[in-house]
Design a protein around this nucleic acid. Structure first.
Lengths: 195, 195
DNA sequence: GTTTTAACTGAACATCCGTTCAGCGGCAAA
DNA sequence: TTTGCCGCTGAACGGATGTTCAGTTAAAAC
């Protein structure tokens, strides 16, 4: 046997990435074998190597794509005039974006350690760039005296950790809607920075 | 060769747990082999099975011990009279305890998925019990009208995520001392709940 | 000084791992 | 109708995996 009916290159590639993402997020990078991914795609293990040079590159591709999309989406996000409006935009954006990609968020926070050092640094830098976006909002608000923050760096890490945590417990169709959750988190974030 | 000079049972057991904890936290449960743990301990792989029935039981033991110690330490922690004082005690305790055991904290949040369902539920229940401790403080403060929280359950998750996040970036000897960090986080937590 | 026992070795088990590659079937262009 | 090649198979590679166990030795018990 060889290729099944029809041409599949433009289906198989994306499907490998989506199945790998799902499996890595569920069981962890090291716990998922190339054969498991292949089986989920409906293909033999060898075929995966037409789309990725090796297993780590597959993980890196998923993480890099996620971070690129995150930064690009935030860059295209409308935000208000002042620091308070900018912070509200960031809070709502972060929750909305992360809840739309729970698997990728989980991977980004858990599986960085499975990357070689060069790849690790690349993802780490993208993450720092994103954190810097929030910190600049906090610094602007601090200078405009609309925020009261003892340390903008710590506040950045605290807020991001708080917001990202939503992905660990949120379930679609739960007690609260996504909009309600975002409103509550914005309320807490606003108070936390003294605005 | 067999046993080296001296009796080692009371050394080897704890050493297996501490080395396994370190390696699991660094590389992930699935990525660490029994032979790697054995090598770190200074023993052959087969000897590990005198101390644990299998690899998953070793992970479970680490997680269970961590959660037990966490709950026990909090139970023995002095806390003030009112909800505000209790929240301050919780914030400072959580940061101090988690920073003293970064590997175990990391494991607890990342490797639950490698547990069988029975073991998973046990650890999950202990975690819920700990979260409940915080929520009860928030509920008490809400009723006493010293806190202004839209939703105590969400506030619980938000605060714990914020506080636990410290372990992901804190490095001994960094820009800020642990006491200063705890003070800043307490400031933000207090504001976030409207106290 | 002898026996017992606790602590560990080292080899073996079947199975799985990531990765490579010669070959083949189905499709499109000529 | 033939040719060429894209997308994939299926087997194979060396090595690693978790786990078991008969055997061995140092120390403890008598």
């Amino acid at each position: 046997m060889a290729r099944k009916t029809g041409s599949h290159a433009q289906i198989t590639g994306p499907k490998i990435r989506s199945e790998a993402l799902r499996l890595f997020a569920r069981h962890g990078f090291a716990a998922v074998s190339m054969r498991q991914i292949a089986a989920a795609v409906g293909v033999q293990a060898g075929a995966l190597y037409l789309y990725t040079p090796d297993k780590e590159a597959l993980l890196f591709d998923l993480l890099k794509t996620h971070m690129d999309e995150l930064l690009e989406a935030w860059a295209g996000e409308p935000r208000g005039a002042g620091p308070v409006e900018a912070l509200e935009a960031f809070v709502r954006f972060h929750i909305r974006f992360n809840l739309s990609r729970p698997d990728a968020v989980f991977l980004s926070y858990m599986e960085l350690r499975n990357l070689g050092s060069a790849n690790f640094v690349m993802i780490e830098d993208l993450r720092k760039a994103y954190e810097r976006e929030l910190e600049e909002i906090l610094i602007a608000g601090q200078q405009a005296k609309v925020f009261a923050i003892p340390d903008t760096k710590l506040a950045t890490m605290a807020l991001i950790a708080m917001l990202t945590g939503v992905t660990t417990w949120f379930r679609e169709g739960g007690r609260l809607s996504q909009a309600r959750i975002a409103a509550i988190y914005w309320d807490m974030a606003r108070k936390a920075v003294g605005a």
